[in-house]
Amino acid sequence: MSRARRRAAAVMAAVAAGVALAVVLLTGAANGNSSGVTDIGGNTSAVLYAAGHRPLAPEFSGTTLTGSRLSVSAYRGKVVVLNFWGSWCAPCREEAPALAALARTYRGAGVAFLGVDVRDTDASAQAFARDFGITYPSVADPASVVTMDFTTVVPIAGTPTTLVIDRTRHIAGAVFGAATYSELATILATVTRG
């Protein structure tokens, strides 16, 4: 009798524990903060990766909007701001003036700006670049293949996303969604110093 009751209690406890675990998993209460990643100004969409926690950026090459070949290996030894954008994307249009201004500010400071034009056409993309005064090159990525490569190391959930790649080709910072001038300037200040 008491053995049966003890077993019933054990089964009850096991099931209750299982359900509690399921609830935790389903509601995502176990949402920990992975180390080595710092949010900038409490904004979870802009992050800095600490040295030693920086993912290696994939190599890529492609055709620019103006038809020339571009390989990221040409930027070795430079800090690269890599912006995934599209002329169709509203937040990209919101952040475009900030990116154009940053590119002007950092000209000659060993920081290269580079775009990856996602799901776009050359006509629309060139019109966008003219409109916002963006003079740095962009690689056309109509099929999102370059984006997919980067998604294996950084969780790119949508467009726009901006990555800051350090001189050793490691990703040092990222802004998911529309980037602001100050967010990127903060990341660049850290990366160009180190």
């Binding site: 109509p142 999102s144 293949v145």
Partner: peptide, 30 residues
């Protein structure tokens, strides 16, 4: 057109709780 199976190339994306953007099968379809 070609697309790669990555979150930003999908029009609608409903991942399960334990699926991250990097977990998608890396195929392309034209």
């Amino acid at each position: 057109q070609t697309f790669a199976d990555t979150a930003s190339a999908l029009d609608e994306f409903h991942p399960g709780r334990f699926v991250t953007a990097a977990d998608l099968a890396p195929f392309t379809i034209r």
